[in-house]
Nucleic acid binder design. Structure first.
Length: 283
DNA sequence: GTCATATGTGGAG
DNA sequence: TCCACCTATGACC
């Protein structure tokens, strides 16, 4: 589930469903029982995200800090009848009254972080994060200054949350494909115009992700309808060029998509469309 | 039932 | 660089 778009989308859903009203906070699973007690019954002021970090603010000023990690999920539902019993390991449960007389429910499972923080502690977390393409006013030059000075692979730099906040393995692979850039190319070999184009593209792609809840990165001419191919059936749902398409033909040139580990995560690319920086052909 | 896998991160060695 | 951790799910025996 979770790259930056997921957290920004959740922040919106939580604000919509709970803001301005008191919320019951509990930990059916028990592991967040102490934290839940600190904010239980308070008015939920709103929720926001920075990169992959989600912050839920309460009237007292305390915030619940959530990081979903690789496998966490936060499901927000509304209903009219009885609130359903918790299913599985629900670390945190939010229950609010819906303005229409029903209820709103938020169930958090599998998170790597769920903790109550003071505003100062939230600031400290945010200071560890690079600019977030989904936050208005983010400065792409902060990321560029790190990228242009680094000999590390651009595929690693894009996933480094201190450099750039919110990009994960899917957006990384797809952004590099769309910009015909090999994942192992050193950051310092990029030109500023290439980074500007990548940032602009990320802003658009990730906003689309917030809107739809999926990661779709293929251009109109490469959609299943345009190409007469089967739509992707996968847990992340979106239409992509290379992410987890190892061995399948590149949608642009037909060569099999390649994969290799880069800093512990699978990296996917097309050897023809994303030539190495050394052998990159002209034209 | 076991095992591998997953859009992530941090710590040990 | 390897490993643990958070939890659910699908493949396979």
């Amino acid at each position: 589930m979770p790259e930056g778009h997921t957290l920004h989308r959740l922040a919106g859903h939580l604000t919509e469903a709970f803001a301005g009203r008191p919320v019951r906070v509990s930990s059916p699973q028990g592991r967040f029982a102490d934290g839940a007690a600190l904010v239980d019954g308070q008015v939920l002021a709103g929720a926001g995200a920075w990169g992959k970090h989600l912050f839920v603010a309460f009237a007292s000023g305390l915030r619940v800090h959530v990081h979903l990690g690789l496998i966490g999920q936060l499901d927000v539902h509304r209903g009219l009848d009885d609130v359903p019993a918790p299913q599985g390991a629900v670390r945190m449960r939010l229950v609010g009254e819906d303005p229409d007389g029903g209820w709103a429910l938020g169930d958090l499972r599998g998170a790597i972080t769920c903790a109550v923080l003071t505003p100062e502690q939230v600031e400290a977390v945010v200071r560890t994060q690079g600019p977030d393409p989904l936050r208005p006013g983010s400065d792409p030059d902060l990321a560029w200054q790190r990228i242009r000075r680094s000999r590390k692979a651009v595929g690693a730099l894009l996933m480094d949350q201190k450099v750039l906040a919110g990009v994960g393995n899917v957006y990384r692979a797809e952004l590099l494909f769309r910009h015909r850039t090999h994942p192992l190319r050193p950051g310092a070999t990029l030109r500023s115009g290439q980074w500007e184009a990548m940032w602009t593209d990320l802003v658009a792609l990730m906003h689309e992700g917030v809107r739809t809840g999926r990661i779709d990165t293929v251009r109109p001419e490469h959609t299943p309808e345009a190409m007469g191919r089967e739509p992707r059936k996968d847990d992340h749902g979106g239409e992509v060029y290379v992410y987890r398409r190892t061995g399948q033909p590149c949608l642009v040139c037909g060569r099999p998509v390649r994969t290799e580990e880069l800093e512990g995560r699978n990296s996917f690319w097309c050897a023809r469309c994303q030539p190495t920086f050394r052998s990159r052909a002209v034209g």
